[in-house]
């Protein structure tokens, strides 16, 4: 149900998701959604290892 004042917007893409997809979404971790690196590993491992998340 679409709600014009809502912060979220409805989508008609729900048919793209299988039950298996949704099950996977339920238990996703941050590294699995890209937080497995800060930048290109070759850059972070050598350049920023004084502070991996680059504090300057």
């Amino acid at each position: 149900m679409s709600n014009k004042t809502s912060l979220t917007t409805s989508t008609d893409r729900t048919t793209q998701f299988t039950t298996a997809d949704l099950g996977r979404i339920m238990t996703l971790t941050l590294p699995q959604v890209g937080m497995d690196r800060m930048t290109a590993p070759r850059v972070e491992e050598t350049l920023s290892c004084s502070a991996l998340t680059a504090h300057y």
């Binding site: 800060m38 930048t39 290109a40 070759r42 850059v43 972070e44 050598t46 350049l47 920023s48 004084s50 502070a51 680059a54 504090h55 300057y56």
Partner: peptide, 20 residues
Amino acid sequence: EIRSTYGPDSSHFFGTWLLN
């Protein structure tokens, strides 16, 4: 050279490294 090889986002990491 770092930017053209590794992209502009490497600026943060380059900066951290240089300060150290």
